[in-house]
């Protein structure tokens, strides 16, 4: 996927989950970030060292 040259960095607010509300399957899991309450500090969360390490996904 050729997206061409980088232009600028953005910080997009993680205020709202893109997931449907009220779905119990979206409940927090112990092995990953909580979809429902990403919180304003999500952009500062360190990478999960146990996750796969794609250069591009």
């Amino acid at each position: 996927m050729n997206i061409d040259r980088p232009v600028r960095e953005l910080l997009v607010e993680p205020v709202v989950s893109p997931l449907p509300d009220g779905d119990p399957a979206g409940a927090p899991r112990s092995d990953g970030p909580d979809v429902r309450v990403p919180g304003p500090d999500v952009a500062r969360r360190p990478d999960d060292p146990g996750a796969a390490s794609p250069a591009r996904v």
């Binding site: 061409d4 232009v7 990403p38």
Partner: peptide
């Protein structure tokens, strides 16, 4: 897909920190 967190905007697309399909 929704993209959020740290996002690098490119001339023809994006690289994002978080994403979920819409």
């Amino acid at each position: 897909t929704a993209l959020w967190g740290r996002v690098v905007e490119h001339a023809h697309g994006f690289r994002a920190q978080f994403a979920y399909p819409l």
